[in-house]
Computed example of a mutant assay.
Amino acid sequence: MTLTVRALRAGVPEDAEAFARTRRATIPYLVCTAEALAWEAAHAPAGQRLHRLLATGPDGTVAGCADTGLLAGSTAPGHGFLHTAVPPGQAGRGAGAALVAAGEAYLAGLGVRRVHSWVADEDGARRFAERLGYRRSRQARFLGLDLRHAPLPELPATLPAGVTLASVADFADDLRPLYEADVECAADEPGDVDVGATPYEVWLRLNWGRPDWDAGLSGVVLVDGRVAAYSVAQTDGVDRYWSGMTGTRRAFRGRGLATLAKLAALRRARAAGYVHAYTGNDATNAPMLAVNRRLGYRVVASEWRHLKAL
């Protein structure tokens, strides 16, 4: 099949919807909407050099998509990302290879020396990545929870002394306490690249300006008035909920506060009508995997970070 790989056209709703639809068909666990994609294209950091691609057949059918750019915030230069998505019905027709070639050419033009890519934990995907020179690095897991039928634990009738529950919406006048918690927790996230702290103004714009992040559903646990733990809700506005980030500040770990924050967010999401809850964890992140198991999440898929030297 003759394929054409082209850049996603900014401001063209049909392109954004085609990209979102393709990604959802390939990775159904993620929240991905055309509205959020358009927002990202307009607000991505200039230093990220975000670039999105569509692979189409002669009849205009979308056979795959990819996003690529620089790892913004990396403390080491020369790192880029390239993530491709080819729906099951289009696999084996050359779309993946065409998208990778175009993405790598773009990254090479930016001086990237090391490409990071997530690859599904499937034999075909693994062989494809290895054939193109990518090597496995670390594993991550997608976990799912059916909010319609899952027996979610009840919130404690009485909280420990000094502990209170809130939502991110309660911090509308000043999100800096949440920013400080997020910077501390993000620094402890497992990963292949060290990422420096994001300035507050940039963090505010890239997080709480997004159309798919829900401040009212997101859970926050306070201890003596200080932010101790939080769980961020990302939704598609229809039926899908994603835990964007859950964390506990170092001084408060080991007290079950992340579980409490996430449980509060999940119960709000169910009350709001969301039915599919997903989250993702690095395979080495034992504390968060334990939190999710306690809440009823089960592994639904895995993927591997792959690296390639350009």
Rank of each mutant, 00 (worst) to 15 (best):
A277S: 09
L152K: 14
S218Q: 02
A290I: 03
L295Y: 07
Y230T: 08
G73A: 12
V163L: 05
W208G: 06
S218M: 05
A10N: 13
R113L: 06
K262E: 07
D224I: 08
R293H: 11
V62M: 04
G78Y: 07
G209S: 03
A172D: 11
G144Y: 05
Q48H: 12
F252A: 05
P151M: 14
D192W: 09
L289M: 09
A258Q: 01
A251R: 13
P190W: 03
R305S: 11
L143Q: 13
A10K: 15
E201C: 11
L110F: 03
R268I: 02
R141V: 14
L206V: 00
R298G: 05
G57W: 00
E189N: 12
N207L: 02
D212W: 05
V195K: 10
A271N: 07
T164Q: 12
H43E: 10
V112I: 10
P199K: 12
P177H: 06
A10Q: 14
R267Y: 05
T246L: 07
L260G: 02
L152Q: 06
R305Y: 00
A166H: 09
T259Q: 15
A264S: 15
A269G: 07
Q139E: 15
A283T: 01
A101L: 11
T75S: 13
S117H: 05
A76Y: 09
A169V: 08
S167P: 00
P287W: 11
R136D: 04
L82I: 06
D174H: 01
L266I: 01
T75W: 02
A95G: 05
A309P: 02
D123S: 14
R255Y: 02
F171R: 11
A277H: 03
G162E: 07
H149G: 08
R226G: 06
Q139R: 15
A265R: 03
L107T: 01
T198G: 00
E154Q: 14
D170T: 10
V300R: 12
L71Q: 12
D188W: 04
P211R: 10
G60C: 05
A66S: 12
R205I: 04
Q48F: 04
W203C: 06
A85Y: 06
V220H: 02
V100N: 06
